[in-house]
């Protein structure tokens, strides 16, 4: 075995390499996103994921080996969720005054997300377990997988649908809101959080801090409301 291949065998199995690769892929993706003037189509999550997926495929690395290193980044999702309390606290006066639109938009958005997703897939003839996996797709992965399990869906499929929804929402929110002529960053951020959870929230923080704050509120509230309404609504399909 040559020295380089021996070095590779060592690196490929080490958490350090895949942790560095994750941060490097994201740094490259974020640089591209900045170079494109934060054009929503140049989504940093999507680009970093494609880069890493290509690297894993080329090096025949199993996802489990990759995750040994990437888990340190993944773990920070918990503290980052807690950290949402800080902008919420700093903008509390603005948020408190917007409570009526917040709750109206939350109710309308949560119900639209479930009915439209399940309705379209049902019209295309998707079986019940796929509909059940799809119903909670707009909420954060941990809550969505729990709901999916409870109502007879497939949690692994739900995780895929949740992340796809997040990336789609992050890409679509800016052009859609511009097309509608909506300039209220509270409304734009809140919509991003309701429709596409944390990845939509990440996009909102990239655009405007107030939009990010409202997206964070939407992410938390929609997780709660969806967990309550999906088990009831899916019962109508049985």
């Amino acid at each position: 075995m040559s020295d380089t291949s021996r070095l590779w065998v060592f690196l490929a199995a080490s958490p350090l390499f895949w942790l560095t690769a994750t941060v490097a892929a994201y740094a490259a993706a974020d640089w591209l996103s900045q170079a494109a003037n934060r054009n929503p189509l140049v989504n940093p999550v999507l680009i970093a994921v494609l880069l890493l997926a290509a690297l894993l495929t080329l090096t025949h690395t199993p996802y489990e080996v990759y995750f040994e290193g990437a888990q340190f980044v993944h773990f920070l999702l918990g503290p980052a969720t807690v950290a949402l309390a800080v902008p919420l606290h700093r903008n509390w006066e603005t948020v408190r005054r917007a409570l009526p639109p917040i709750f109206a938009a939350l109710g309308a958005g949560a119900i639209t997300a479930v009915i439209s997703a399940v309705g379209i897939a049902w019209a295309f003839g998707a079986p019940f377990d796929v509909l059940a996996s799809l119903a909670p797709k707009s909420v954060t992965a941990a809550i969505a997988m729990g709901i999916s399990q409870e109502i007879g869906g497939n949690p692994a499929l739900t995780a895929t649908l949740v992340i796809s929804t997040g990336v789609l929402g992050a890409i679509m929110v800016t052009p859609l809101m511009n097309a509608l002529g909506l300039t209220d960053y509270r409304a734009r951020g809140f919509a991003a959080g309701v429709a596409s959870h944390g990845i939509g929230t990440a996009r909102a923080f990239q655009v405007d801090p107030l939009a990010g704050t409202f997206a964070g509120i939407a992410l938390g509230l929609n997780g709660l409301l969806t967990a309550l309404i999906v088990p009831v609504m899916i019962g109508w399909l049985r």
Binding site: A113, A117, A126, S138, L161, L168, M177, A187, V194, A195
Partner: peptide
């Protein structure tokens, strides 16, 4: 069907949420 459901539902949710909010 599943892809159309994801794209359509995400767009519709964004529009309905933002319009009701405003």
């Amino acid at each position: 069907g599943l892809i159309i459901a994801l794209v359509g539902s995400t767009a519709l949710t964004l529009i309905v949420t933002a319009l009701v909010f405003v």
